[in-house]
Amino acid sequence: MQKSLHISADDCTGCYQCVLACSDEHGYDFNPMKSVIQVFKFEDEGRYVPYTCTQCDEAWCQKACPTDAISVDANGAKVVSEALCVGCKVCTIACPFGTINYNADSGKVIKCDLCGGDPACVKACPTSAITFVNSDTAQFDKMRAWAGKTDAGTQQSN
């Protein structure tokens, strides 16, 4: 079963626990600037939105890489090989979503690797705004919510 990060921005409070867990898990201490999940704040609307790589099946970053430094691991994560990455940044240009970025400290690019199948951001989130779920059914909860609204009051009672 392939699993995906499922982000429900409605539940996000903007606390950065995911951001801190990510940088810590990847050896960068507690450093929001070195986290590959970021929380964007739309203060005027009171909205907080976590955002990270969605692990495209046909990944622009992977196709653009001239050194084949990006491969797919057992969890479906697109993973950067530090040994092969030359820091050319072409993948950062190719990614339509901006979720792969250059890290000046290492001279390589960094992106979400799903932490080998046990994402630190998911464990750190206090409101379950970020979950790690079956990719095939990731949106079923949303379907269920809409099904409830669509059908509300239309069924005959039995």
Partner: peptide
């Protein structure tokens, strides 16, 4: 009230927006 919000690293999130 639009939402609650958190300060840095806070898992309580008491702030009012």
């Amino acid at each position: 009230l639009v939402s609650n919000a958190a300060c840095f690293a806070c898992t309580i999130a008491c702030q009012r927006v």
